[in-house]
Amino acid sequence: MKTTNWEIQVKKNTKKLAIWTALWTSSMALATFGPKFIWDENTILTILAVLLNALLGLGMILMNIRHINALDDLQKKIQLDAMGIALGTGVVGGLSYSLLDITNLISNDAEISFLVIFMSVTYMISLLIGQKRYK
């Protein structure tokens, strides 16, 4: 199947976004495990690692905005629907999860990582459904 110029541009942006995301997640791992395993709880290095993580996160967000702006009408709609579902279920699910913790209905503390995983999975499933719907 012939690839359009538009598709080539979107592929380039997607690749750049993947690189920024990989850098951000790597810096997250560095800031999380570095203090214990690499620099022996040195406060300055820990602050620098957290700042680096925040800066790379900002870069990832800006690249994501550029990526979405370059999409066409339909792709933007699919993304918007998926983001809306992920945000909505994240807020509702996250608050319900927090309530379960506050009211001691669950034995463990509510972990933010569960919410991030839940929102990510919801977003990916919504994207797949959106892509299938307009195929």
Partner: peptide, 26 residues
Amino acid sequence: TQADLANKLGVSRQTVNAIEKGKFDP
């Protein structure tokens, strides 16, 4: 072809297909 039209309009082939089928309004 759908790909030709998509290229001329600067959109994906999927978008041209969805508009043709009436699944999506541009």
